[in-house]
Amino acid sequence: VITKDQQAFMNVILDAYNRHQIPPDVAKKLLQEQYSAEENFLLLTEMATSQVQVLVEFTKHIPGFLSLDHEDQIALLKGSAVEASFLRSAQVFSSKMPNGHTEVLEERIRKSGISEEFMTPMFNFYKTIGELHMVEEEQALLTAITIMTPDRPYVKDQQAVERLQEPMLDVLRKLCALHHPHEPQYFARLLGRLTELRTLNHYHAEMLTSWRMN
């Protein structure tokens, strides 16, 4: 059973998650079909920057985040920005978009100059996230949990972060049981995606280097 307090806690996170999305004018540019390689690079960079800004705004609303040490706040965001962005992009990809949008978006990313060896695990991740059919509360909580990961580099007070992450894991576990009563492994599958995200994060620096070179 999800208690009233947990429901309120979850609503705060969900509301912040829904309110902080990439601005429509930035997102719209992605669907304009004519672009040179250089314009594509700049646009994807603009998207990435916007995504980080939106992520920070969302994170400020995660209960307790602003009470953490300021440098720890930065360490958490730095350590999770790539993973949280992959998670958000995966959700965009698995959401219902108007006809043809998914293809335009996919083609833009495939033509971005990122090497194929990084592209495959990224699109595989998008696919496995899509197959989970998460409800929006699960998406919001999973993103918040990714950000509030205590063992990121340079986090000094890991226990304080753990104290904020635990109640979110608890609500997510209950939500999974409620929404997916016939899939007892669902919560474990979600956590498994977080491990996959860590691998993507690990390759991200190499991916950026290859992208810049291309």
Partner: peptide, 21 residues
């Protein structure tokens, strides 16, 4: 331009500012 800013710069700026105001 944003493309010249590092991740940490973007995070610090966003943490300091308040886009909602």
């Amino acid at each position: 331009p944003a493309s010249n800013l590092g991740l940490e710069d973007i995070i610090r700026k966003a943490l300091m500012g308040n886009l909602e105001e």
